[in-house]
Nucleic acid binder design. Structure first.
Length: 300
DNA sequence: AAATCGGGGAT
DNA sequence: ATCCCAGATTT
């Protein structure tokens, strides 16, 4: 859950998940749909699929016991270079370097790294590995906390930093210029229409998104294609459509502007999805985008 | 190597 | 408005 996500955002999700599924066996036995519903709103939904696949791999291929080495852990779905090293160091005292986003920044400053971190990741890892002590888990967490507090993204409190006086970034007089950021492509805008349909009793028409790609497997209301130029409105069924304004949503690599339409329709004209009472929307696997859409249409 | 994949808190 | 978060996987 914490991959690219702050503790504040994760907190309640973690508490909910561990209450619902206290053991790896519980998680492996749960239906994926249940995980996606509980994950809704947290983002990066591939993580929920990976978590489920990981639990099943641990149960089915490792007898319900996690591997106790970084190499073994990294074979599991969703557990990559950082997470495998973090678990191995913190849980099993493996003397391995743990690099998260904080360490990228701390090390880029410490070495006054003249290139973006991505171009020197393995060199940084090798350099940090030389400093890993016996208490590797404590060291990993201490270094991450140093990055989160003293060597923070916009503020470098060099006067109280224990890495002095060796930090080359501090010696440059401008440590916060590191890490050097790669030139970022500007975020394009995509536009489309979203259609919120209710039946005579007020139930809302929902459907599932495809199993791959953006918001894979999550719940949505029907939309048009999303494209650079706003297409003409093609309502899914004939009805008295009302324009309910616009929803703007920012994804990692594009900005989305959806025109919101609502109407009461005849239920038998729709087939692929299902009808949900407004009171049940809370429990659906609706990502934040579609919760915004429903709110804009006057539901939720 | 580059692109994909969410959402929100801090500034 | 911008940055970036206890990154992983696919292309």
């Amino acid at each position: 859950m914490l991959q690219q996500t702050t503790v504040a955002a994760v907190r309640n999700y973690f508490l909910r998940f561990t209450a619902l599924w206290p053991t790896v066996h519980d998680l492996a036995a749960a239906p994926l749909d249940a995980l996606l519903r509980e994950w809704a709103g947290l983002g990066y939904y591939a993580r929920a699929r990976n978590l489920h696949a990981c639990a099943q791999a641990v149960v089915e291929q490792h007898g319900g016991v996690f591997p106790n080495t970084s190499a073994g852990l990294q074979t599991l779905p969703g557990i990559g270079a950082y997470t495998s090293a973090a678990i191995a160091a913190i849980c099993f005292d493996e003397e391995i370097a743990v690099l998260d986003g904080n360490l990228d920044r701390v090390l880029a400053r410490y070495y006054a790294l003249p290139v973006p971190v991505r171009e020197a990741k393995e060199e940084l890892r090798a350099a940090l590995q030389l400093s890993v002590p016996k208490r590797s888990g404590d060291f990993a967490q201490a270094m991450m906390d140093l990055g989160a507090t003293i060597c923070a993204p916009r503020t470098a409190s060099c006067l109280i930093c224990p890495l002095q006086p060796d930090c080359l970034g501090t010696r440059t007089g401008n440590p916060t210029m590191f890490p050097i950021k790669p030139v970022k492509a500007e975020r394009p805008t995509r536009r489309g229409h979203a259609f919120v349909m209710t039946d005579a009793s007020g139930d809302v028409y929902l459907q599932s998104r495809p199993g791959k790609g953006l918001l894979a497997g999550m719940t949505e209301v029907p939309t048009s294609e999303w494209s650079a130029e706003p297409g003409a409105v093609m309502h899914p069924v004939a009805a008295e459509w009302r324009h309910r304004g616009q929803v703007v949503h920012i994804f990692t690599h594009f900005r989305l502007e959806l025109e919101i339409w609502s109407a009461e329709v005849m239920p038998d004209e729709l087939e692929n999805g299902w009808w949900a009472p407004a009171s049940a929307l809370k429990g659906e696997a609706l990502p934040t985008l579609f919760r915004k859409v429903l709110a804009q249409a006057g539901l939720e």
